[in-house]
Design a protein around this nucleic acid. Sequence first.
DNA 1: AGCACGCTTCGCGGCCGGGCGAAACGTGCC
DNA 2: GGCACGTTTCGCCCGGCCGCGAAGCGTGCT
Lengths: 234, 234
Amino acid sequence: MTQAMPLNRYQLAEIGALLAEPARAAMLLALMDGTTRPAGELARAAGVGAATASAHLKRLLEGGLLGVHAQGRHRYYRLADDEVAALLETLALPRQRPALPAPAADPALRRARSCYRHLAGELGVALCGGLLERGYLRTASDGLRLQADGGEALAAAGLASSTVQPLLALRGRGCLDWTERRLHVGGPLGVALTAALLDAGWLRRAPRGRALLPSGDGLRRLAMLGVRLDDPPR
Amino acid sequence: MTQAMPLNRYQLAEIGALLAEPARAAMLLALMDGTTRPAGELARAAGVGAATASAHLKRLLEGGLLGVHAQGRHRYYRLADDEVAALLETLALPRQRPALPAPAADPALRRARSCYRHLAGELGVALCGGLLERGYLRTASDGLRLQADGGEALAAAGLASSTVQPLLALRGRGCLDWTERRLHVGGPLGVALTAALLDAGWLRRAPRGRALLPSGDGLRRLAMLGVRLDDPPR
DNA sequence: AGCACGCTTCGCGGCCGGGCGAAACGTGCC
DNA sequence: GGCACGTTTCGCCCGGCCGCGAAGCGTGCT
């Protein structure tokens, strides 16, 4: 049904509900080492009666988290598959996750990249911060708006006024950058702004991947706007 | 409290409970793109009233899944950190997970390890497969049984007959190996068999962890039993 | 100041679901 | 067959919490 699509709210809630009961959580944790255990043992592990345990196991079974294997008068339960095991592992060991598949192992990616069609990374954060600091960009009730003097500054820095003009009508919204943990500009404004920078040659796309490479000229012009990177580009 | 320790049942259930409500799940999903959204917008996204949404947001906040940022009369909510984002990503995209953070990053662990006191890993799978292929091990109605000629073969390969004899009376059961996705021998038979291999020096325990290290001699003797690893030990 | 608006807090009704004991079902053992 | 045992099903009670409307609080606009 849903092969690679993100789960909807009900499916996500369904998973959560299965984990939400300490008794069920205890059962799953007891099975996390890959063992296969009879219902009674899981009942003891969970600290509940046999009847209660049976109901929980039924739910976990129907929820697809467990598998069963009847043998004699025992019913041996196990985690359904390694996908479930992996899921629990990520949930149960939340602290020792390194940083997830290296969000910014690549320095170029860390510096600047596209995030859903707008600029992210250190440069994205610096752009947002610089524009806000000078008042070129302001948070309105309906989102981020580029101010008139901001438009003039962009034009003065060398962007064609035909490019700058439409930006004034667009709204942006703050988009949190995972590697930077600081806001950068997203939303329609962010998209258009990035497109403008690319168009002007201040940035160009890396041949592969999402990295965006600032040109020396682009950096100088951005500096005119108050955009400064915390550490110099290497 | 629990820095790198696995979560206990209550902590796991707590996380689950936070996800268990469709309204909360919808809010989290709405924030999964890294955006920052005011409470009202999240209420609309979740399809609940402002009061209900506020209660949910409070719970998510206290649960550590969200962060807030007051601005004017709006309160902008966002995912608490990239750890939460990674967590939701694993939960919400369960099908396209590559292979999980390498359940057997350690080659030794991948090759052979103990799984609830019996042998698992490639070697465990190969042992089970080899014995089954030669008919030394058969699936009876009550589980896996070592056949008489299997016992002889073990003895011929160098196990003391006093060690082999008790094995004939024990039953094993198939135990799914996460890294291999193939059956290996568990149950009392699996436990005793592994103990025998350790006792004979064909295997030894790694100083730390659950890895089991086969000796060269042990591998040769296992090969006599039809046990072969798919790729040679490095 | 006054109003509008976003959000939170409070109080209430309703329902889902966990817990248990008792009973039923099925299997292994003597 | 009869008993013991593991497990499931049934019926019941009760606590937690989801949902809402109404009221309270704080901020922005004019």
